[in-house]
Every structure is written in structure tokens, then in C-alpha cells.
Design a protein around this nucleic acid. Structure first.
Lengths: 241, 241
DNA sequence: CTAGCTTCTTGTCAAGCTGACAAAAATAGC
DNA sequence: GCTATTTTTGTCAGCTTGACAAGAAGCTAG
């Protein structure tokens, strides 16, 4: 920046996707098995390098999303999570990765009986606990992604993105409980989401019944910003960062 | 990622700093006048390319901070804001910039009477209103930075980072009012910050007096996460994103 | 040295929200 | 019809918020 003759260093730019969904009331993340070195055979986030030097980063993220996860782009929340570029994180050279967070409603198993048995949706606990070993710094990225999702659930209507087009209030509560990892009182939750204007709106008279009283169906409301916000029960009194 | 022979494209990596401070109860951002093309002579955020291919991005951000703003790194909050990498944002080629947000207490004018009269601290309103024209996509970055600061003030004790080592409750209120851009009731504010445990702690018996009753002095408390959070008065009822 | 002005600090009060919990309502299965 | 299960509607005390009154503590002017 100070001398015209000095040539700034270049880096390789990649995108990584943290795709979260809910399966059996548990938060899962999509992982793929790496087919090439480095970390061949290890689990990693879907992602890859820019296709060409002029590709937009957001476009690249969407491209990887459809390539590697075959997801409908329309109904998806996709948000930039951060940059991960520690020197040495990739043995191939200086690779800087832009991570994106995507929230998906319930989806079918992406890897149906192939040899990549370990790939596909993995419970988030296995990742956070270190039970699964991931390539690169992907555990870190996932940790950050989950934390971001937890915070976003408080002030945005993101939770409805985990659900299908219609859902019951109990479905929505399942989302909050799974992402936050804590139980909530159904009666207080019911009251809260009902009175948060624009969060959810009734969806016809259809009802869902398995056992017990059939639940009313709702649809995501017009507001994406919740006011007042949903509050996570006292995370831990007098918390430090 | 699919063929070993394909070589991924490379990009130039830069860091940009959004450094915010408070001057005369107004939010200001640090801007410098560009000395080289492109946008020579235009105002821009402090920043620059990585120094060498192995430099850590966070290290580069801190380096630019001390190089271009001569700021004490110890007392500063520095946080990653996001990546800005639209193709075409820089005529020199594919430049991807990692933006950082820094919050600084009141500081002396960095450019004292030099010819770069326009550089230095600029009121945030002149930037947001488009009154000032900035290089690259820096207006966008600043807009995002200010919004991030606004949100962070709610849940973190960031506001104390705008103040010096000790401050009065009114000083702190000035920060909230300047960043949020709205007036607050001094009595309710006083009660709120007092009862938010760990936010501020009394600092000796010293007091500050100009006119009116002298105010008690406080110091930043141990907690960085505020619980319960400070709530911004109804941003605007039923807001859409 | 007293009145007046300014700013800080302590209260008061009604309205609204939260957490804990009771009980009614609506179905499926026996 | 009876029971188990889940959803939905209430109740109630405690706490926080927003609006506002009034006392406290210094400075300045007459």
C-alpha cells in the first residue's frame, strides 16, 4: 500500500456451508466425506473454491448449496457467518474460507445407502463434543454457526425456517428446544408466540393429529424481526464472555 | 474440487477497519484520504493488503489499526464484521476485504492541520446520508458496522469501550443515545444500568462537576454479556427485514 | 448569603411481561 | 364410555418498563 512496486500476496478463496436442520427433535448438521487430499476420507462441511476469478462469493455459496446438498434455494435462509483464514489451516497453501449459515426444514437423507455411510446429517452434539473429528477448522466453524443460530432465534423469525410451510406451535417449540438445548414450558411458549405480532399466522382450519388434542396449524408471519424478542432463560447468571 | 488438474482462482486479500468513536455526543468514523489510485484523493476506511502470504488476518487488522490510527490496542474492542468481495468492487482485480469493527474511546484529532484536511473523524450522519462520497463499497461497510454496533450495545457491555477508564452514568447514556440515535430518559436509564449486575461498578469517591450536581464515577464491570439486555425502544412496530 | 439554575439521584405508580402451575378441551384407543 | 395424551385457555404473584415527581448537590448572580 505504500510502494507501487510491492506486490500484495494472493490467497485461495473458498466457501464453506453450515447447513442446519432438525431431525427427530435434534439439531443436525450436513457433513460430507472428503474425496481428495488433504483429509481424504474425513468428514467436512460442504464447500469448495470459487469456480472462476469473477464468481461472486454469495453466488458460490448458493452453487455449493445446490451442488452438494441439492436444496431448494428459494425457501432457505443463507447468511454470512465469518471468515476463517488462519495460515496453516490448509496444508495446500493459504486458503481463506468464507463460511455461510443455512437453515433448512426437515429433509430426506441425502446419502441413501451409498458407501459414504458416515456422511449426511450428523447430530450436532457429536460434533460439539468432539466425538466426530472433522477436517480443517470445521468444528470451530460449526460451533460458531450454532451459536449464531441460537442468538438469531431470539430476535428473528428464523425458527420458522426450520419448519415446513405449515406447522404447529409445538413444532416451533421443538425448534427452540433443539437449538437452545433446553426445555421450555409449552403453555408460556404458546402464549408468547401468539402475542408476538407477525411471527405466526393461522393457516386455514386444517389440523394435525397423532395422539392427543389436534393442534392448530400456522404459517410464518410477515415479520422477520421479533419484537419483543424471545428470551432465552437465564443463560447463566452474570456470564462473562 | 472435482479434478486434480483444475487450479482454483486466487484473490487479493485486504482488511478494512471501521473505527467508531464518540465526539461531542455524536458518533464518528475514522476515514483517511487515499494516496494512490484507484480513488486517489477520495475518503476511505483505513486498511490495506496482507503484508505477506502468511500473515494472520487478525494480526493484519491490528497492524493496520496501529499503523493508520495509532491506537492503543489493549483497550480496544475489535471484531470481525464480514467479508466484502464483490467482483468489480476494486478495479485492480479481484480484491476480497475482511472488515473489522473497532470501538475507541474519545481520541485526539489524528490529522492535526495537515493538508489532508478532509481526513480524520467524520460524523457518521454525513456518511450514512451519502453527503460524503467514499471509495469502493466503504459506505456499505460502514452502514453494516454501525448496525452491528447498535445491536451489540443491547447485549454486551460494549458501550463502556466508548468511554474512558472512568465515566459517569450520563456519559454512558450519551453513548447509547449517539449510537442508537434516539433520546433516553435519564432516570430510567440510571435505574437500568445500576441494576444490570456487573455492567458498571463504582470508581472511588471522585466526582465530576461542570455545572449542576456532581455525578458519581464508575468503571466498566466484570461482565461483558448483559443480562437482562438493554432494550432499544420500539425500533418501529412490526418491522420487516 | 440567598435565590435561581442545572444536573444528578432517588422514588412512585400503573401497565405489561414472565415463570410457575391449574384446568378445560379435543381426539385416539380400549 | 373411560382413560391417556396433547393442545389450549386461564390464573396469579413477582418483576421490569415507561412516564413522571421531587429531593439533593453543586455553581452563579445579585
Amino acid at each position: 500500500m505504500t510502494q507501487d512496486q510491492w506486490v500484495p500476496p494472493v490467497v485461495l478463496l473458498a466457501v464453506d456451508l453450515v447447513i442446519l436442520t432438525l431431525r427427530q427433535s435434534h439439531l443436525h448438521v450436513l457433513l460430507v466425506e472428503r474425496g481428495i487430499e488433504p483429509y481424504r476420507g474425513a468428514l467436512a462441511l460442504p464447500g469448495g473454491f470459487l469456480q472462476h476469478a469473477e464468481e461472486d462469493i454469495t453466488v458460490a455459496a448458493h452453487r455449493e448449496l445446490s451442488e452438494e446438498a441439492d436444496l431448494d434455494l428459494e425457501t432457505l435462509s443463507l447468511e454470512q457467518l465469518g471468515v476463517y483464514g488462519d495460515p496453516g489451516r490448509d496444508p495446500r497453501g493459504r486458503v481463506v474460507s468464507v463460511a455461510y449459515l443455512a437453515i433448512a426444514p426437515r429433509l430426506p437423507e441425502p446419502t441413501a445407502g451409498t458407501d459414504a455411510a458416515a456422511a449426511g446429517w450428523q447430530p450436532i452434539e457429536r460434533v460439539l463434543s468432539g466425538d466426530l473429528t472433522l477436517a480443517f477448522d470445521h468444528q470451530r466453524i460449526i460451533t460458531d454457526g450454532v451459536e449464531r443460530a441460537r442468538v438469531k432465534l431470539e430476535r428473528s423469525s428464523l425458527a420458522t425456517a426450520f419448519c415446513g410451510p405449515t406447522f404447529t406451535i409445538t413444532d416451533l417449540q421443538d425448534v427452540y428446544e433443539a437449538v437452545w438445548g433446553i426445555p421450555l414450558d409449552p403453555r408460556n411458549f404458546y402464549r408468547k408466540v401468539q402475542k408476538t405480532e407477525g411471527f405466526i399466522v393461522p393457516a386455514g382450519t386444517a389440523r394435525k393429529a397423532t395422539t392427543g388434542r389436534p393442534a392448530r396449524l400456522f404459517r410464518a408471519g410477515p415479520c422477520t424481526v421479533l419484537y419483543p424478542p424471545m428470551v432465552r432463560p437465564t443463560e447463566s447468571p452474570s456470564e462473562k464472555e
